[in-house]
């Protein structure tokens, strides 16, 4: 029996709304009930608070995606096995959706990332970012000390197998094009003599579109995290150029980019 298209639309919207609210419920109430006690215990009893918080963040987001996969079975997920083996590197990727950073965080228990400066000023959340060892995007005023501290620890963090996850575009692309790249990730890589792994995130923006509140759980879609390349620049080479490195990464991302939708 065929359904009336208008009724079909309402049904789908209601389904998307329900799933979105469940996911937001996990993100807020679920965090407080299921994870906050572990964060509190780690804060007071862990010998390495930063590492403990990073692991908890990974678990929290991993369960978020387990829930999302269960609630949105029309969406398939493909993470290149090579991605999970990355250690001790600066990971850069294109940015299309709010799902991108939390998806990568869910893959790497030892990670850090660059977060917008204003987030560090939000009560409790900002504290959590600090305790997770995340880096502010700028170091003005009271964040100068945090930036200095993060940068002093970064070489040991990377050589110990941790990954720095950065979306060098700094903001989500609305048209699938690769935007201008910020220099921060590449400067940190140079500062720490670290390799750069380039990933490509695909279709996260179809599942959770920028500017929309609802997840699109009914469209057939495959979210991909693809491993593109590893670049190991010779930073001490007199011919090394930061702009050249950024151009190389940009070229790799643009070559992989899907045709304009």
């Amino acid at each position: 029996m065929l359904r009336h298209p208008l009724r079909n639309n309402w049904y789908h919207t209601l389904k998307d709304l329900t799933i979105t609210l469940i996911l937001w419920g996990y993100y807020t109430i679920g965090f407080v009930i299921l994870f906050a006690p572990f964060y509190v215990c780690s804060r007071f009893f862990s010998t390495d608070v930063t590492q403990a918080f990073q692991r908890l963040n990974t678990r929290f987001y991993r369960w978020f995606f387990v829930l999302l996969r269960y609630l949105a079975p029309a969406c398939r997920w493909r993470v290149d096995p090579a991605v999970k083996t990355i250690r001790g590197a600066v990971i850069v990727a294109n940015h299309a959706s709010y799902l991108d950073p939390i998806l990568l965080i869910s893959l790497f228990p030892r990670h850090t990332t660059i977060a917008k400066q204003r987030l560090f000023h939000i009560p409790l959340y900002g504290r959590m970012l600090r305790l997770s060892g995340y880096i502010p995007s700028s170091a003005e005023g009271p964040l100068a000390e945090l930036m200095l501290d993060s940068m002093e620890k970064m070489p040991a963090f990377l050589s110990g197998g941790g990954n720095l996850i950065v979306f060098p575009e700094g903001t989500r692309s609305r048209d699938g094009q690769i935007g201008p790249l910020n220099t921060g990730a590449f400067k940190i890589a140079r500062l720490c003599n670290a390799p750069i792994h380039v990933l490509y995130m695909e279709n996260t923006d179809r599942l959770f579109r920028p500017g929309r509140f609802l997840f699109d759980t009914r469209s057939a879609n495959t979210v991909c995290v693809e491993y593109l390349t590893c670049i190991e620049p010779r930073y001490d080479d007199p011919g090394f150029s930061l702009n050249g490195l950024m151009g190389q990464v940009r070229g790799v991302l643009e070559d992989r980019r899907s045709p304009v939708r």
Binding site: S138, A139, E140, A144, M147, L148, M151, T183, G184, K187, I188, R190, L191
Partner: peptide, 13 residues
């Protein structure tokens, strides 16, 4: 010149 905090740390070194 878009000289940022990370550059400042490198300059300090």
């Amino acid at each position: 010149y878009e000289f940022d905090s990370i550059d400042a740390i490198e300059l300090l070194r």
